[in-house]
């Protein structure tokens, strides 16, 4: 009886110790942004977002910022009768509104391909995740998705960068700090910040944070009105245009004509 009690007690101790190790490992990694929300006001022209936190020593870090996944429709261009024109509408599912990646070292040298695909880290992994309709043969699919990613990079919505992360010793671990330029092109919505700690080609820890981008004040009022009261919005737009045109016409009356 006593030996059984000791056995269970030992097992419980081991379980508690294991839990403590796991918990301490999970809590060692932190991630926070300098702001939880970004307000889009009248003079908004983008912003900056810093990501900082604590990590275990001797790990590589990857920071990923992603917007909500959505469906996007685009036109595919091809030659027809010797001219380049839109020939087909394509639909892309599971497309993040924004995809920013920053790493302390080259992605392919620190993380296995399997892990990159699992955590959707890097453009090749993102390509695999996107669902393209109508379906295309592999070579054409890859070409189209490469074009799609370039299209997003040109629009400042996707980006990958190496370095630019300050790492300093702090306590038994390290603190890290990096700043992202936040593009004004990023639409309102929820954004997820993931920081991955990498060791021996694998993700050993993840810390997360969120950012909300929302319209504010006059911008929000106008946007809501355009979406929800299109008729009133249209009449207001016409009214302002006619009044402005007529007003300028009256102002120019003296100098504008001889009649």
């Amino acid at each position: 009886m006593r030996s059984r009690f000791v056995k269970y007690a030992m097992l419980a101790l081991v379980a508690v110790a294991a839990l403590a190790i796991l918990t301490s490992s999970a809590s060692a990694m932190t991630a926070k942004t300098n702001r939880d929300d970004i307000k889009i006001g009248l003079t908004y022209h983008g912003s900056t977002v810093s990501v900082s936190g604590l990590a275990d020593p001797n790990v590589d870090l990857i920071m990923k910022i992603t917007g909500e996944a959505a469906t996007e429709k685009l036109m595919r261009k091809d030659r027809a009768a010797g001219m380049w024109m839109n020939v087909e509408e394509i639909t892309l599912d599971h497309v993040p509104a924004v995809y920013y990646l920053r790493s302390t070292k080259d992605l392919e040298t620190i993380l296995s391909a399997e892990q990159r695909n699992q955590y959707v880290i890097g453009y090749p992994a993102l390509r695999e995740k996107i669902d393209l309709k109508p379906a295309k043969p592999p070579e054409r699919r890859a070409k189209l998705l490469d074009n799609f990613i370039k299209y997003k990079i040109d629009g400042k919505l996707y980006g990958e960068s190496l370095g630019g992360v300050d790492i300093n010793p702090e306590g038994s671990g390290e603190s890290y700090y990096t700043v992202f330029d936040w593009p004004y092109q990023a639409p309102p919505g929820q954004y997820q910040v993931d920081v991955y700690a990498i060791r021996d080609g694998r993700v050993i820890d993840i810390a997360q944070s969120q950012i909300t981008v929302e319209q504010d004040g006059a911008i929000k009022s106008l946007s809501d009105m355009a979406q929800n009261n299109g008729g009133v919005y249209g009449i207001a737009a016409i009214g302002v245009s006619v009044t402005a045109g007529f007003g300028v016409g009256v102002v120019f009356k003296g100098g504008g004509g001889s009649h």
Binding site: W84, N86, L144, Y151
Partner: peptide
């Protein structure tokens, strides 16, 4: 229409 575009995708 005649020069090859830099991207084979465009908005509708």
């Amino acid at each position: 229409l005649t020069l090859t575009p830099s991207l084979l995708l465009g908005s509708s």
